[in-house]
Write a protein that binds this DNA or RNA. Structure first.
Lengths: 155, 155
DNA sequence: GGCAACCCGACCCCGGTGGTAGGGTTTGAG
DNA sequence: CTCAAACCCTACCACCGGGGTCGGGTTGCC
């Protein structure tokens, strides 16, 4: 049960963008070097963030990327969805974004839903809440000063 | 971000075992047929549950499996760990079972931990709590009578 | 116009998931 | 005592997605 490196790298990229004044765009090359990540791969990852409207790009020489919104207003929920697609604990889980209905595809029969449905729903809820209640700004603060952030998981 | 079918099949197996009187062992063949799962694969899965002490087996003719403890006392946390190994949102996550320390392996440098640490820790906490607060008995009840269980995710 | 950057599609290697095959070994029933 | 039903185990395999690379294109400041 893991996120892929897309999420890891993408989040680290976002944190980098979030920890500086903010108007000047940062080149991917810079990020790739300081974070020691493969540049070509990062390019594909940042494309996901751009299409999701989380970062903005300026092309040409001295171009780069910057956050589309201030870090305080970016919920990690959105970031992860942009990077990984809808977060679901099981492949048969399709959540229409409304948030309550959950479908289990391997049900050809009628009657009682699969027993695991309840469990996966709760797990998904737990992940969703954790992601939604964390902002990019918190991660930025955490990196510059660990221990300073009340690591406590939301109640 | 998904669990594998090991978790899915294993949980369904446990639910089957949990929904009957309980003393008589059930043969895997029966479960495989009613759940329409491949028998040979189920055998490998149930071995994980047995080694974890969650089910007991009786060999020989008319043998089978039964729960080692009443369903009310089985937390899904234990079941998932037995089936999938330690649940971690990111491959570099190694949690010593104490529960608080989290190590991130791709840190060769000193100083500030990777920024994503805070995020993965919270996600892991969310999953852990969801699994720990759900008992097998709840799933059994849910299957026989959906809607009857307060689907609400723990607070 | 040249170089630095963003863009994009095609391609590739590898490990793990999700099985199957084929054999044991235990034990109740006839 | 024998047979068959069940548990048990190891070895093997196909496919797919993750985690990249390569090579080129397009923009636009100096």
């Amino acid at each position: 049960m893991i996120f892929t490196t897309k999420a890891e790298y993408g989040v680290r990229l976002m944190v980098r963008l979030g920890e500086l004044p903010g108007n000047e765009p940062v080149s991917l090359k810079t990020v790739a070097e300081t974070e020691r990540l493969p540049l070509a791969y990062l390019e594909r990852i940042v494309a996901l963030l751009r299409r999701a409207g989380l970062v903005e790009s300026t092309r040409g020489a001295h171009g780069g990327y910057k956050l589309a919104r201030p870090a305080e207003e970016i919920r990690m929920d959105d970031v992860i969805v942009a990077l990984e697609g809808a977060v679901a604990p099981m492949s048969c889980f399709v959540d229409d974004t409304a948030g309550d209905r959950v479908l289990c595809s391997h049900l050809d029969d009628s009657g009682s839903g699969c027993a695991t449905k309840l469990l996966w729903t709760r797990v998904q809820g737990g992940v969703h809440r954790a992601l939604q209640q964390t902002t990019l700004a918190e991660l930025v603060d955490f990196q510059s000063a660990p221990d300073a952030v009340p690591g406590a998981v939301v109640v």
